[in-house]
Design a protein around this nucleic acid. Structure first.
Lengths: 217, 217
DNA sequence: TATATAAGTTAGGTGAGTCTAACAAATTAA
DNA sequence: TTAATTTGTTAGACTCACCTAACTTATATA
């Protein structure tokens, strides 16, 4: 069994590879993601290699083994199930769930995960619209178009966010946006890509960076 | 904020003092309870004294400070709320809840505890019949009579167990016992206190030791 | 292509939480 | 009341997860 810290490194690697459609990641990249020093990450990566969770050669790029990816996916599944529980059953808001789920995802009990899944009626996505891997560790490949790619005059539906940090989520709420909301792209400035959008009758101006973090269908 | 390990030492001390109606505990006693060596417990007790969580003099008995007792009671509250959740909402059995609750009790989030309490409709006792401290850390003093003290021919109602280990709980189930079951004491051997009891029409013979771990009303 | 910069690694150190072995104090029993 | 036993403490060592400082290898650029 892995420690919480080891699980966090695998989860980081899953985000940096599988989820971002790359195959490999570097030591510094992982260290930056987890907010530790490269030397620290290097130590841990050695241990995870020993445990056959990841694959890499000295000075080379790092990728996950099947074993590592399965384990990381299980942690991701737990994270997203707990987020759903907090949001749906305990009245947590969208931007509060992540922090607590970061703790809950490390609870070790297969029965707990399965029963939680059942209790929540086998949800497909978490409150952020992200896909919840099933008990076999499978994740249906999702959508992947950002608001920034939508043409002027078109309407789309928000299904997820890419950035899960509280400041971003709070800003999303301020603009009046939420999962499954319809977004109409009114116009776009060509010189800086500033967009005017309309959500539930409310008009707002959003930046290119903001639009790139809103996933739509 | 304390580590999970520190919280576990305080919880142990709460069990060994407040709950068992003693005032103080010894280093070896605490070490045995937590299944670590006395030297290990000694190190930790020094740290908890530094942090003003416990009170003791070198070579003397250990008692809790108000601060320590409040903190330990909060952990106990979380433990028992999670046990209730697992039992009532996730269909865990009586003897499965403890192990998982041991992990869940260390999740840090006041909102989580309060919302969980609300979600469970402010339960008074956990699945073992033990009182759940309220949000202020108050525990109504309960019952406290054991099956061993019941006279022949009398009937009583089981409200809790003293021993929460899986082997004991499994044995309890085997005898057909559960919370709120009526128990009739049929007879008692005077020379070794072996008791014959009847639960839901089923008769069993139980030892003095067993009877001392069943709390009744 | 030589070198400056970026990326990755090693060596040595820290605190938390555990251990063993040796020792000191307190309690119990002869 | 002395000796044996139990209880508690200290010292030194280990692993995990982190650090800094110094080093090596790879990559990018002048």
């Amino acid at each position: 069994m892995l420690s919480s810290t080891e699980e966090n490194y695998l989860k980081a690697l899953l985000h940096l590879t599988f989820i971002s459609e790359k195959e490999e990641a570097g030591t510094n990249e992982i260290a930056a993601y987890l907010d530790v020093k490269p030397a620290t990450a290097n130590d841990m990566l050695k241990r995870l290699k020993e445990k056959k969770m990841i694959k890499y050669e000295k000075y080379g790029k790092i990728s996950m083994s099947d074993k590592g990816r399965i384990l990381a996916t299980e942690v991701l599944r737990k994270h997203r199930l707990w987020e759903t529980f907090l949001y749906e059953k305990l009245e947590f808001t969208w931007d509060e769930v992540h922090e607590v789920a970061e703790q809950l995802e490390h609870i070790q009990s297969h029965k707990l995960v399965d029963k939680l899944d059942q209790f929540l009626n086998y949800p497909k996505t978490d409150p952020h619209g992200d896909v919840i891997p099933n008990a076999k560790g499978e994740m249906r490949a999702p959508f992947k178009k950002t608001l920034a790619e939508i043409e002027s005059g078109k309407t789309c539906k928000m299904v997820a966010v890419k950035d899960n940090t509280a400041p971003f989520l709070q800003y999303v709420v301020k603009v009046g946006l939420g999962i499954n909301n319809k977004i109409k792209v009114i116009s776009r400035q060509s010189y800086d890509s500033l967009m005017e959008i309309e959500v539930n009758g409310k008009k707002s101006h959003v930046s290119q960076k903001f639009a790139e973090n809103i996933l739509v269908l």
